[in-house]
Amino acid sequence: MIRSLETAAAWLLAILWVLPLAYAFWTAFHPPEFATRFHLFAPLTLQNFVNAWDAAPFARYFVNTVLLVSLILATQLVLVTLAAYAFASYEFFGRDVMFALVLVQLMIMPDVLIVENYRTMAALDLTDTIPAIALPYMASAFGIFLLRQTFKTIPRELDEAARVEGAGSLRVLWEVYVPLARPVYIAYALVSVSYHWNNFLWPLIITNSVGSRPLTVGLQVFSSTDQGIDWSIITAATLMTSGPLLVAFLLFQRQFVQSFMRAGIK
């Protein structure tokens, strides 16, 4: 009895949870006159997507976002790997202090330091560029922490065996540590890509033109100025910008969930 009540409650909550999305799908795939009216046989259309695509430079925004996300991920992977390796397998003066200083970023994220980081970017003459969006996020405390924990679980003997055979520091890292941490890299990459694909406030502040705006900012500019209240087109644009991530998520649901789980266990 209680079990079936629970099942019903779980389903009710799930339906509430997908309702806003289902609503957006309905509006985006039907002609504007059905945007807020529900008929089982309302005609389906892709016209809203066409209109949205034509109304703003979304192709450019997509390119910008892909560039941004790749730039951040590529740099993060390199920097985070090197730093985590240093913390996990070297003893150097000031290591613990440095580690504590790295962890500061878990609390004070670049997201809240917008005023000073803008000042820095202006001083470096980088405002309104894609690297300016990426720079504050390139050294990721979360990534360093995650990988350091992983590297620490790798048996010392493997490391020493490789060194006895004459491998240098970087070769040991590349041939022993990195391959063994592959699942953690995948988890970290998924978390990073979805975070930066979705990031908004800092890109909004630092970008100013079509040439550097990522999708999130482009969507905001589009829906606040160009469209008035044409909800059909706005929801189509909304689904379009989150589309690739949503499709990737639906296809690789299990990996996504497991990656987020892995990233969460410290």
Binding site: L79, M98, I108, V115, T120, P136
Partner: peptide, 25 residues
């Protein structure tokens, strides 16, 4: 040698963190 290697490995990430987290704070 371990001292130098440790610091060199850490340097790129530490520099960026200093510039975009510690300095702005």
């Amino acid at each position: 040698q371990a001292q130098i290697h440790g610091w060199l490995l850490l340097l790129p990430a530490a520099a960026l963190l200093a510039l975009f987290t510690h300095y702005p704070a």
